[in-house]
Design a protein around this nucleic acid. Structure first.
Length: 114
DNA sequence: AGTTTGACTGGAG
DNA sequence: CCTCCAGCCAAAC
């Protein structure tokens, strides 16, 4: 479970990874979410960077709609030229500044915070 | 064992 | 809006 006082064990890291994959796979078409939010949903707040790493390096992530994950400001991943086009072809609107219009596309599960 | 490195974040300038 | 920075934390050096 959440254990902010010690490092992740191999099992926790694996579970975290699985949770991230599971959460990302549920993002509806044409919607987006953020790294930090995914980390929180997985039960590990403050691990946004870990989410990014998981989506980039974990085999199997390519099958997921990982392009529907952007940073908290609605910016696309640096060094990934296809990120923006992939979203645009799903109907995601970008603001003039090149950021995703989060107001319109940010997705959150229904039963997030009881 | 100490340092650097990010598909991150929020705030300052 | 942009860049820079401290805080963040597991992984890779």
């Amino acid at each position: 479970m959440k254990d902010y006082l010690s490092k992740m064990t191999a099992e926790q890291a694996c579970a975290f990874q699985a949770d991230v994959m599971n959460i990302v796979s549920q993002i509806p078409r044409g919607r987006v979410t953020t790294y930090g939010l995914v980390a929180t949903l997985a039960g590990w707040p403050s691990h946004a960077r870990m989410v990014g790493r998981t989506l980039r390096y974990t085999p199997g992530a390519e099958k997921l709609p990982c392009h529907r994950v952007v940073n908290s400001e609605g910016r696309t991943a640096p060094g990934w030229s296809q990120h923006r086009p992939l979203l645009e072809q799903e109907g995601v609107a970008f603001k003039p500044n090149g950021h995703v219009d989060m107001k319109r596309h940010l997705w959150m599960p229904e039963n997030l915070f009881p």
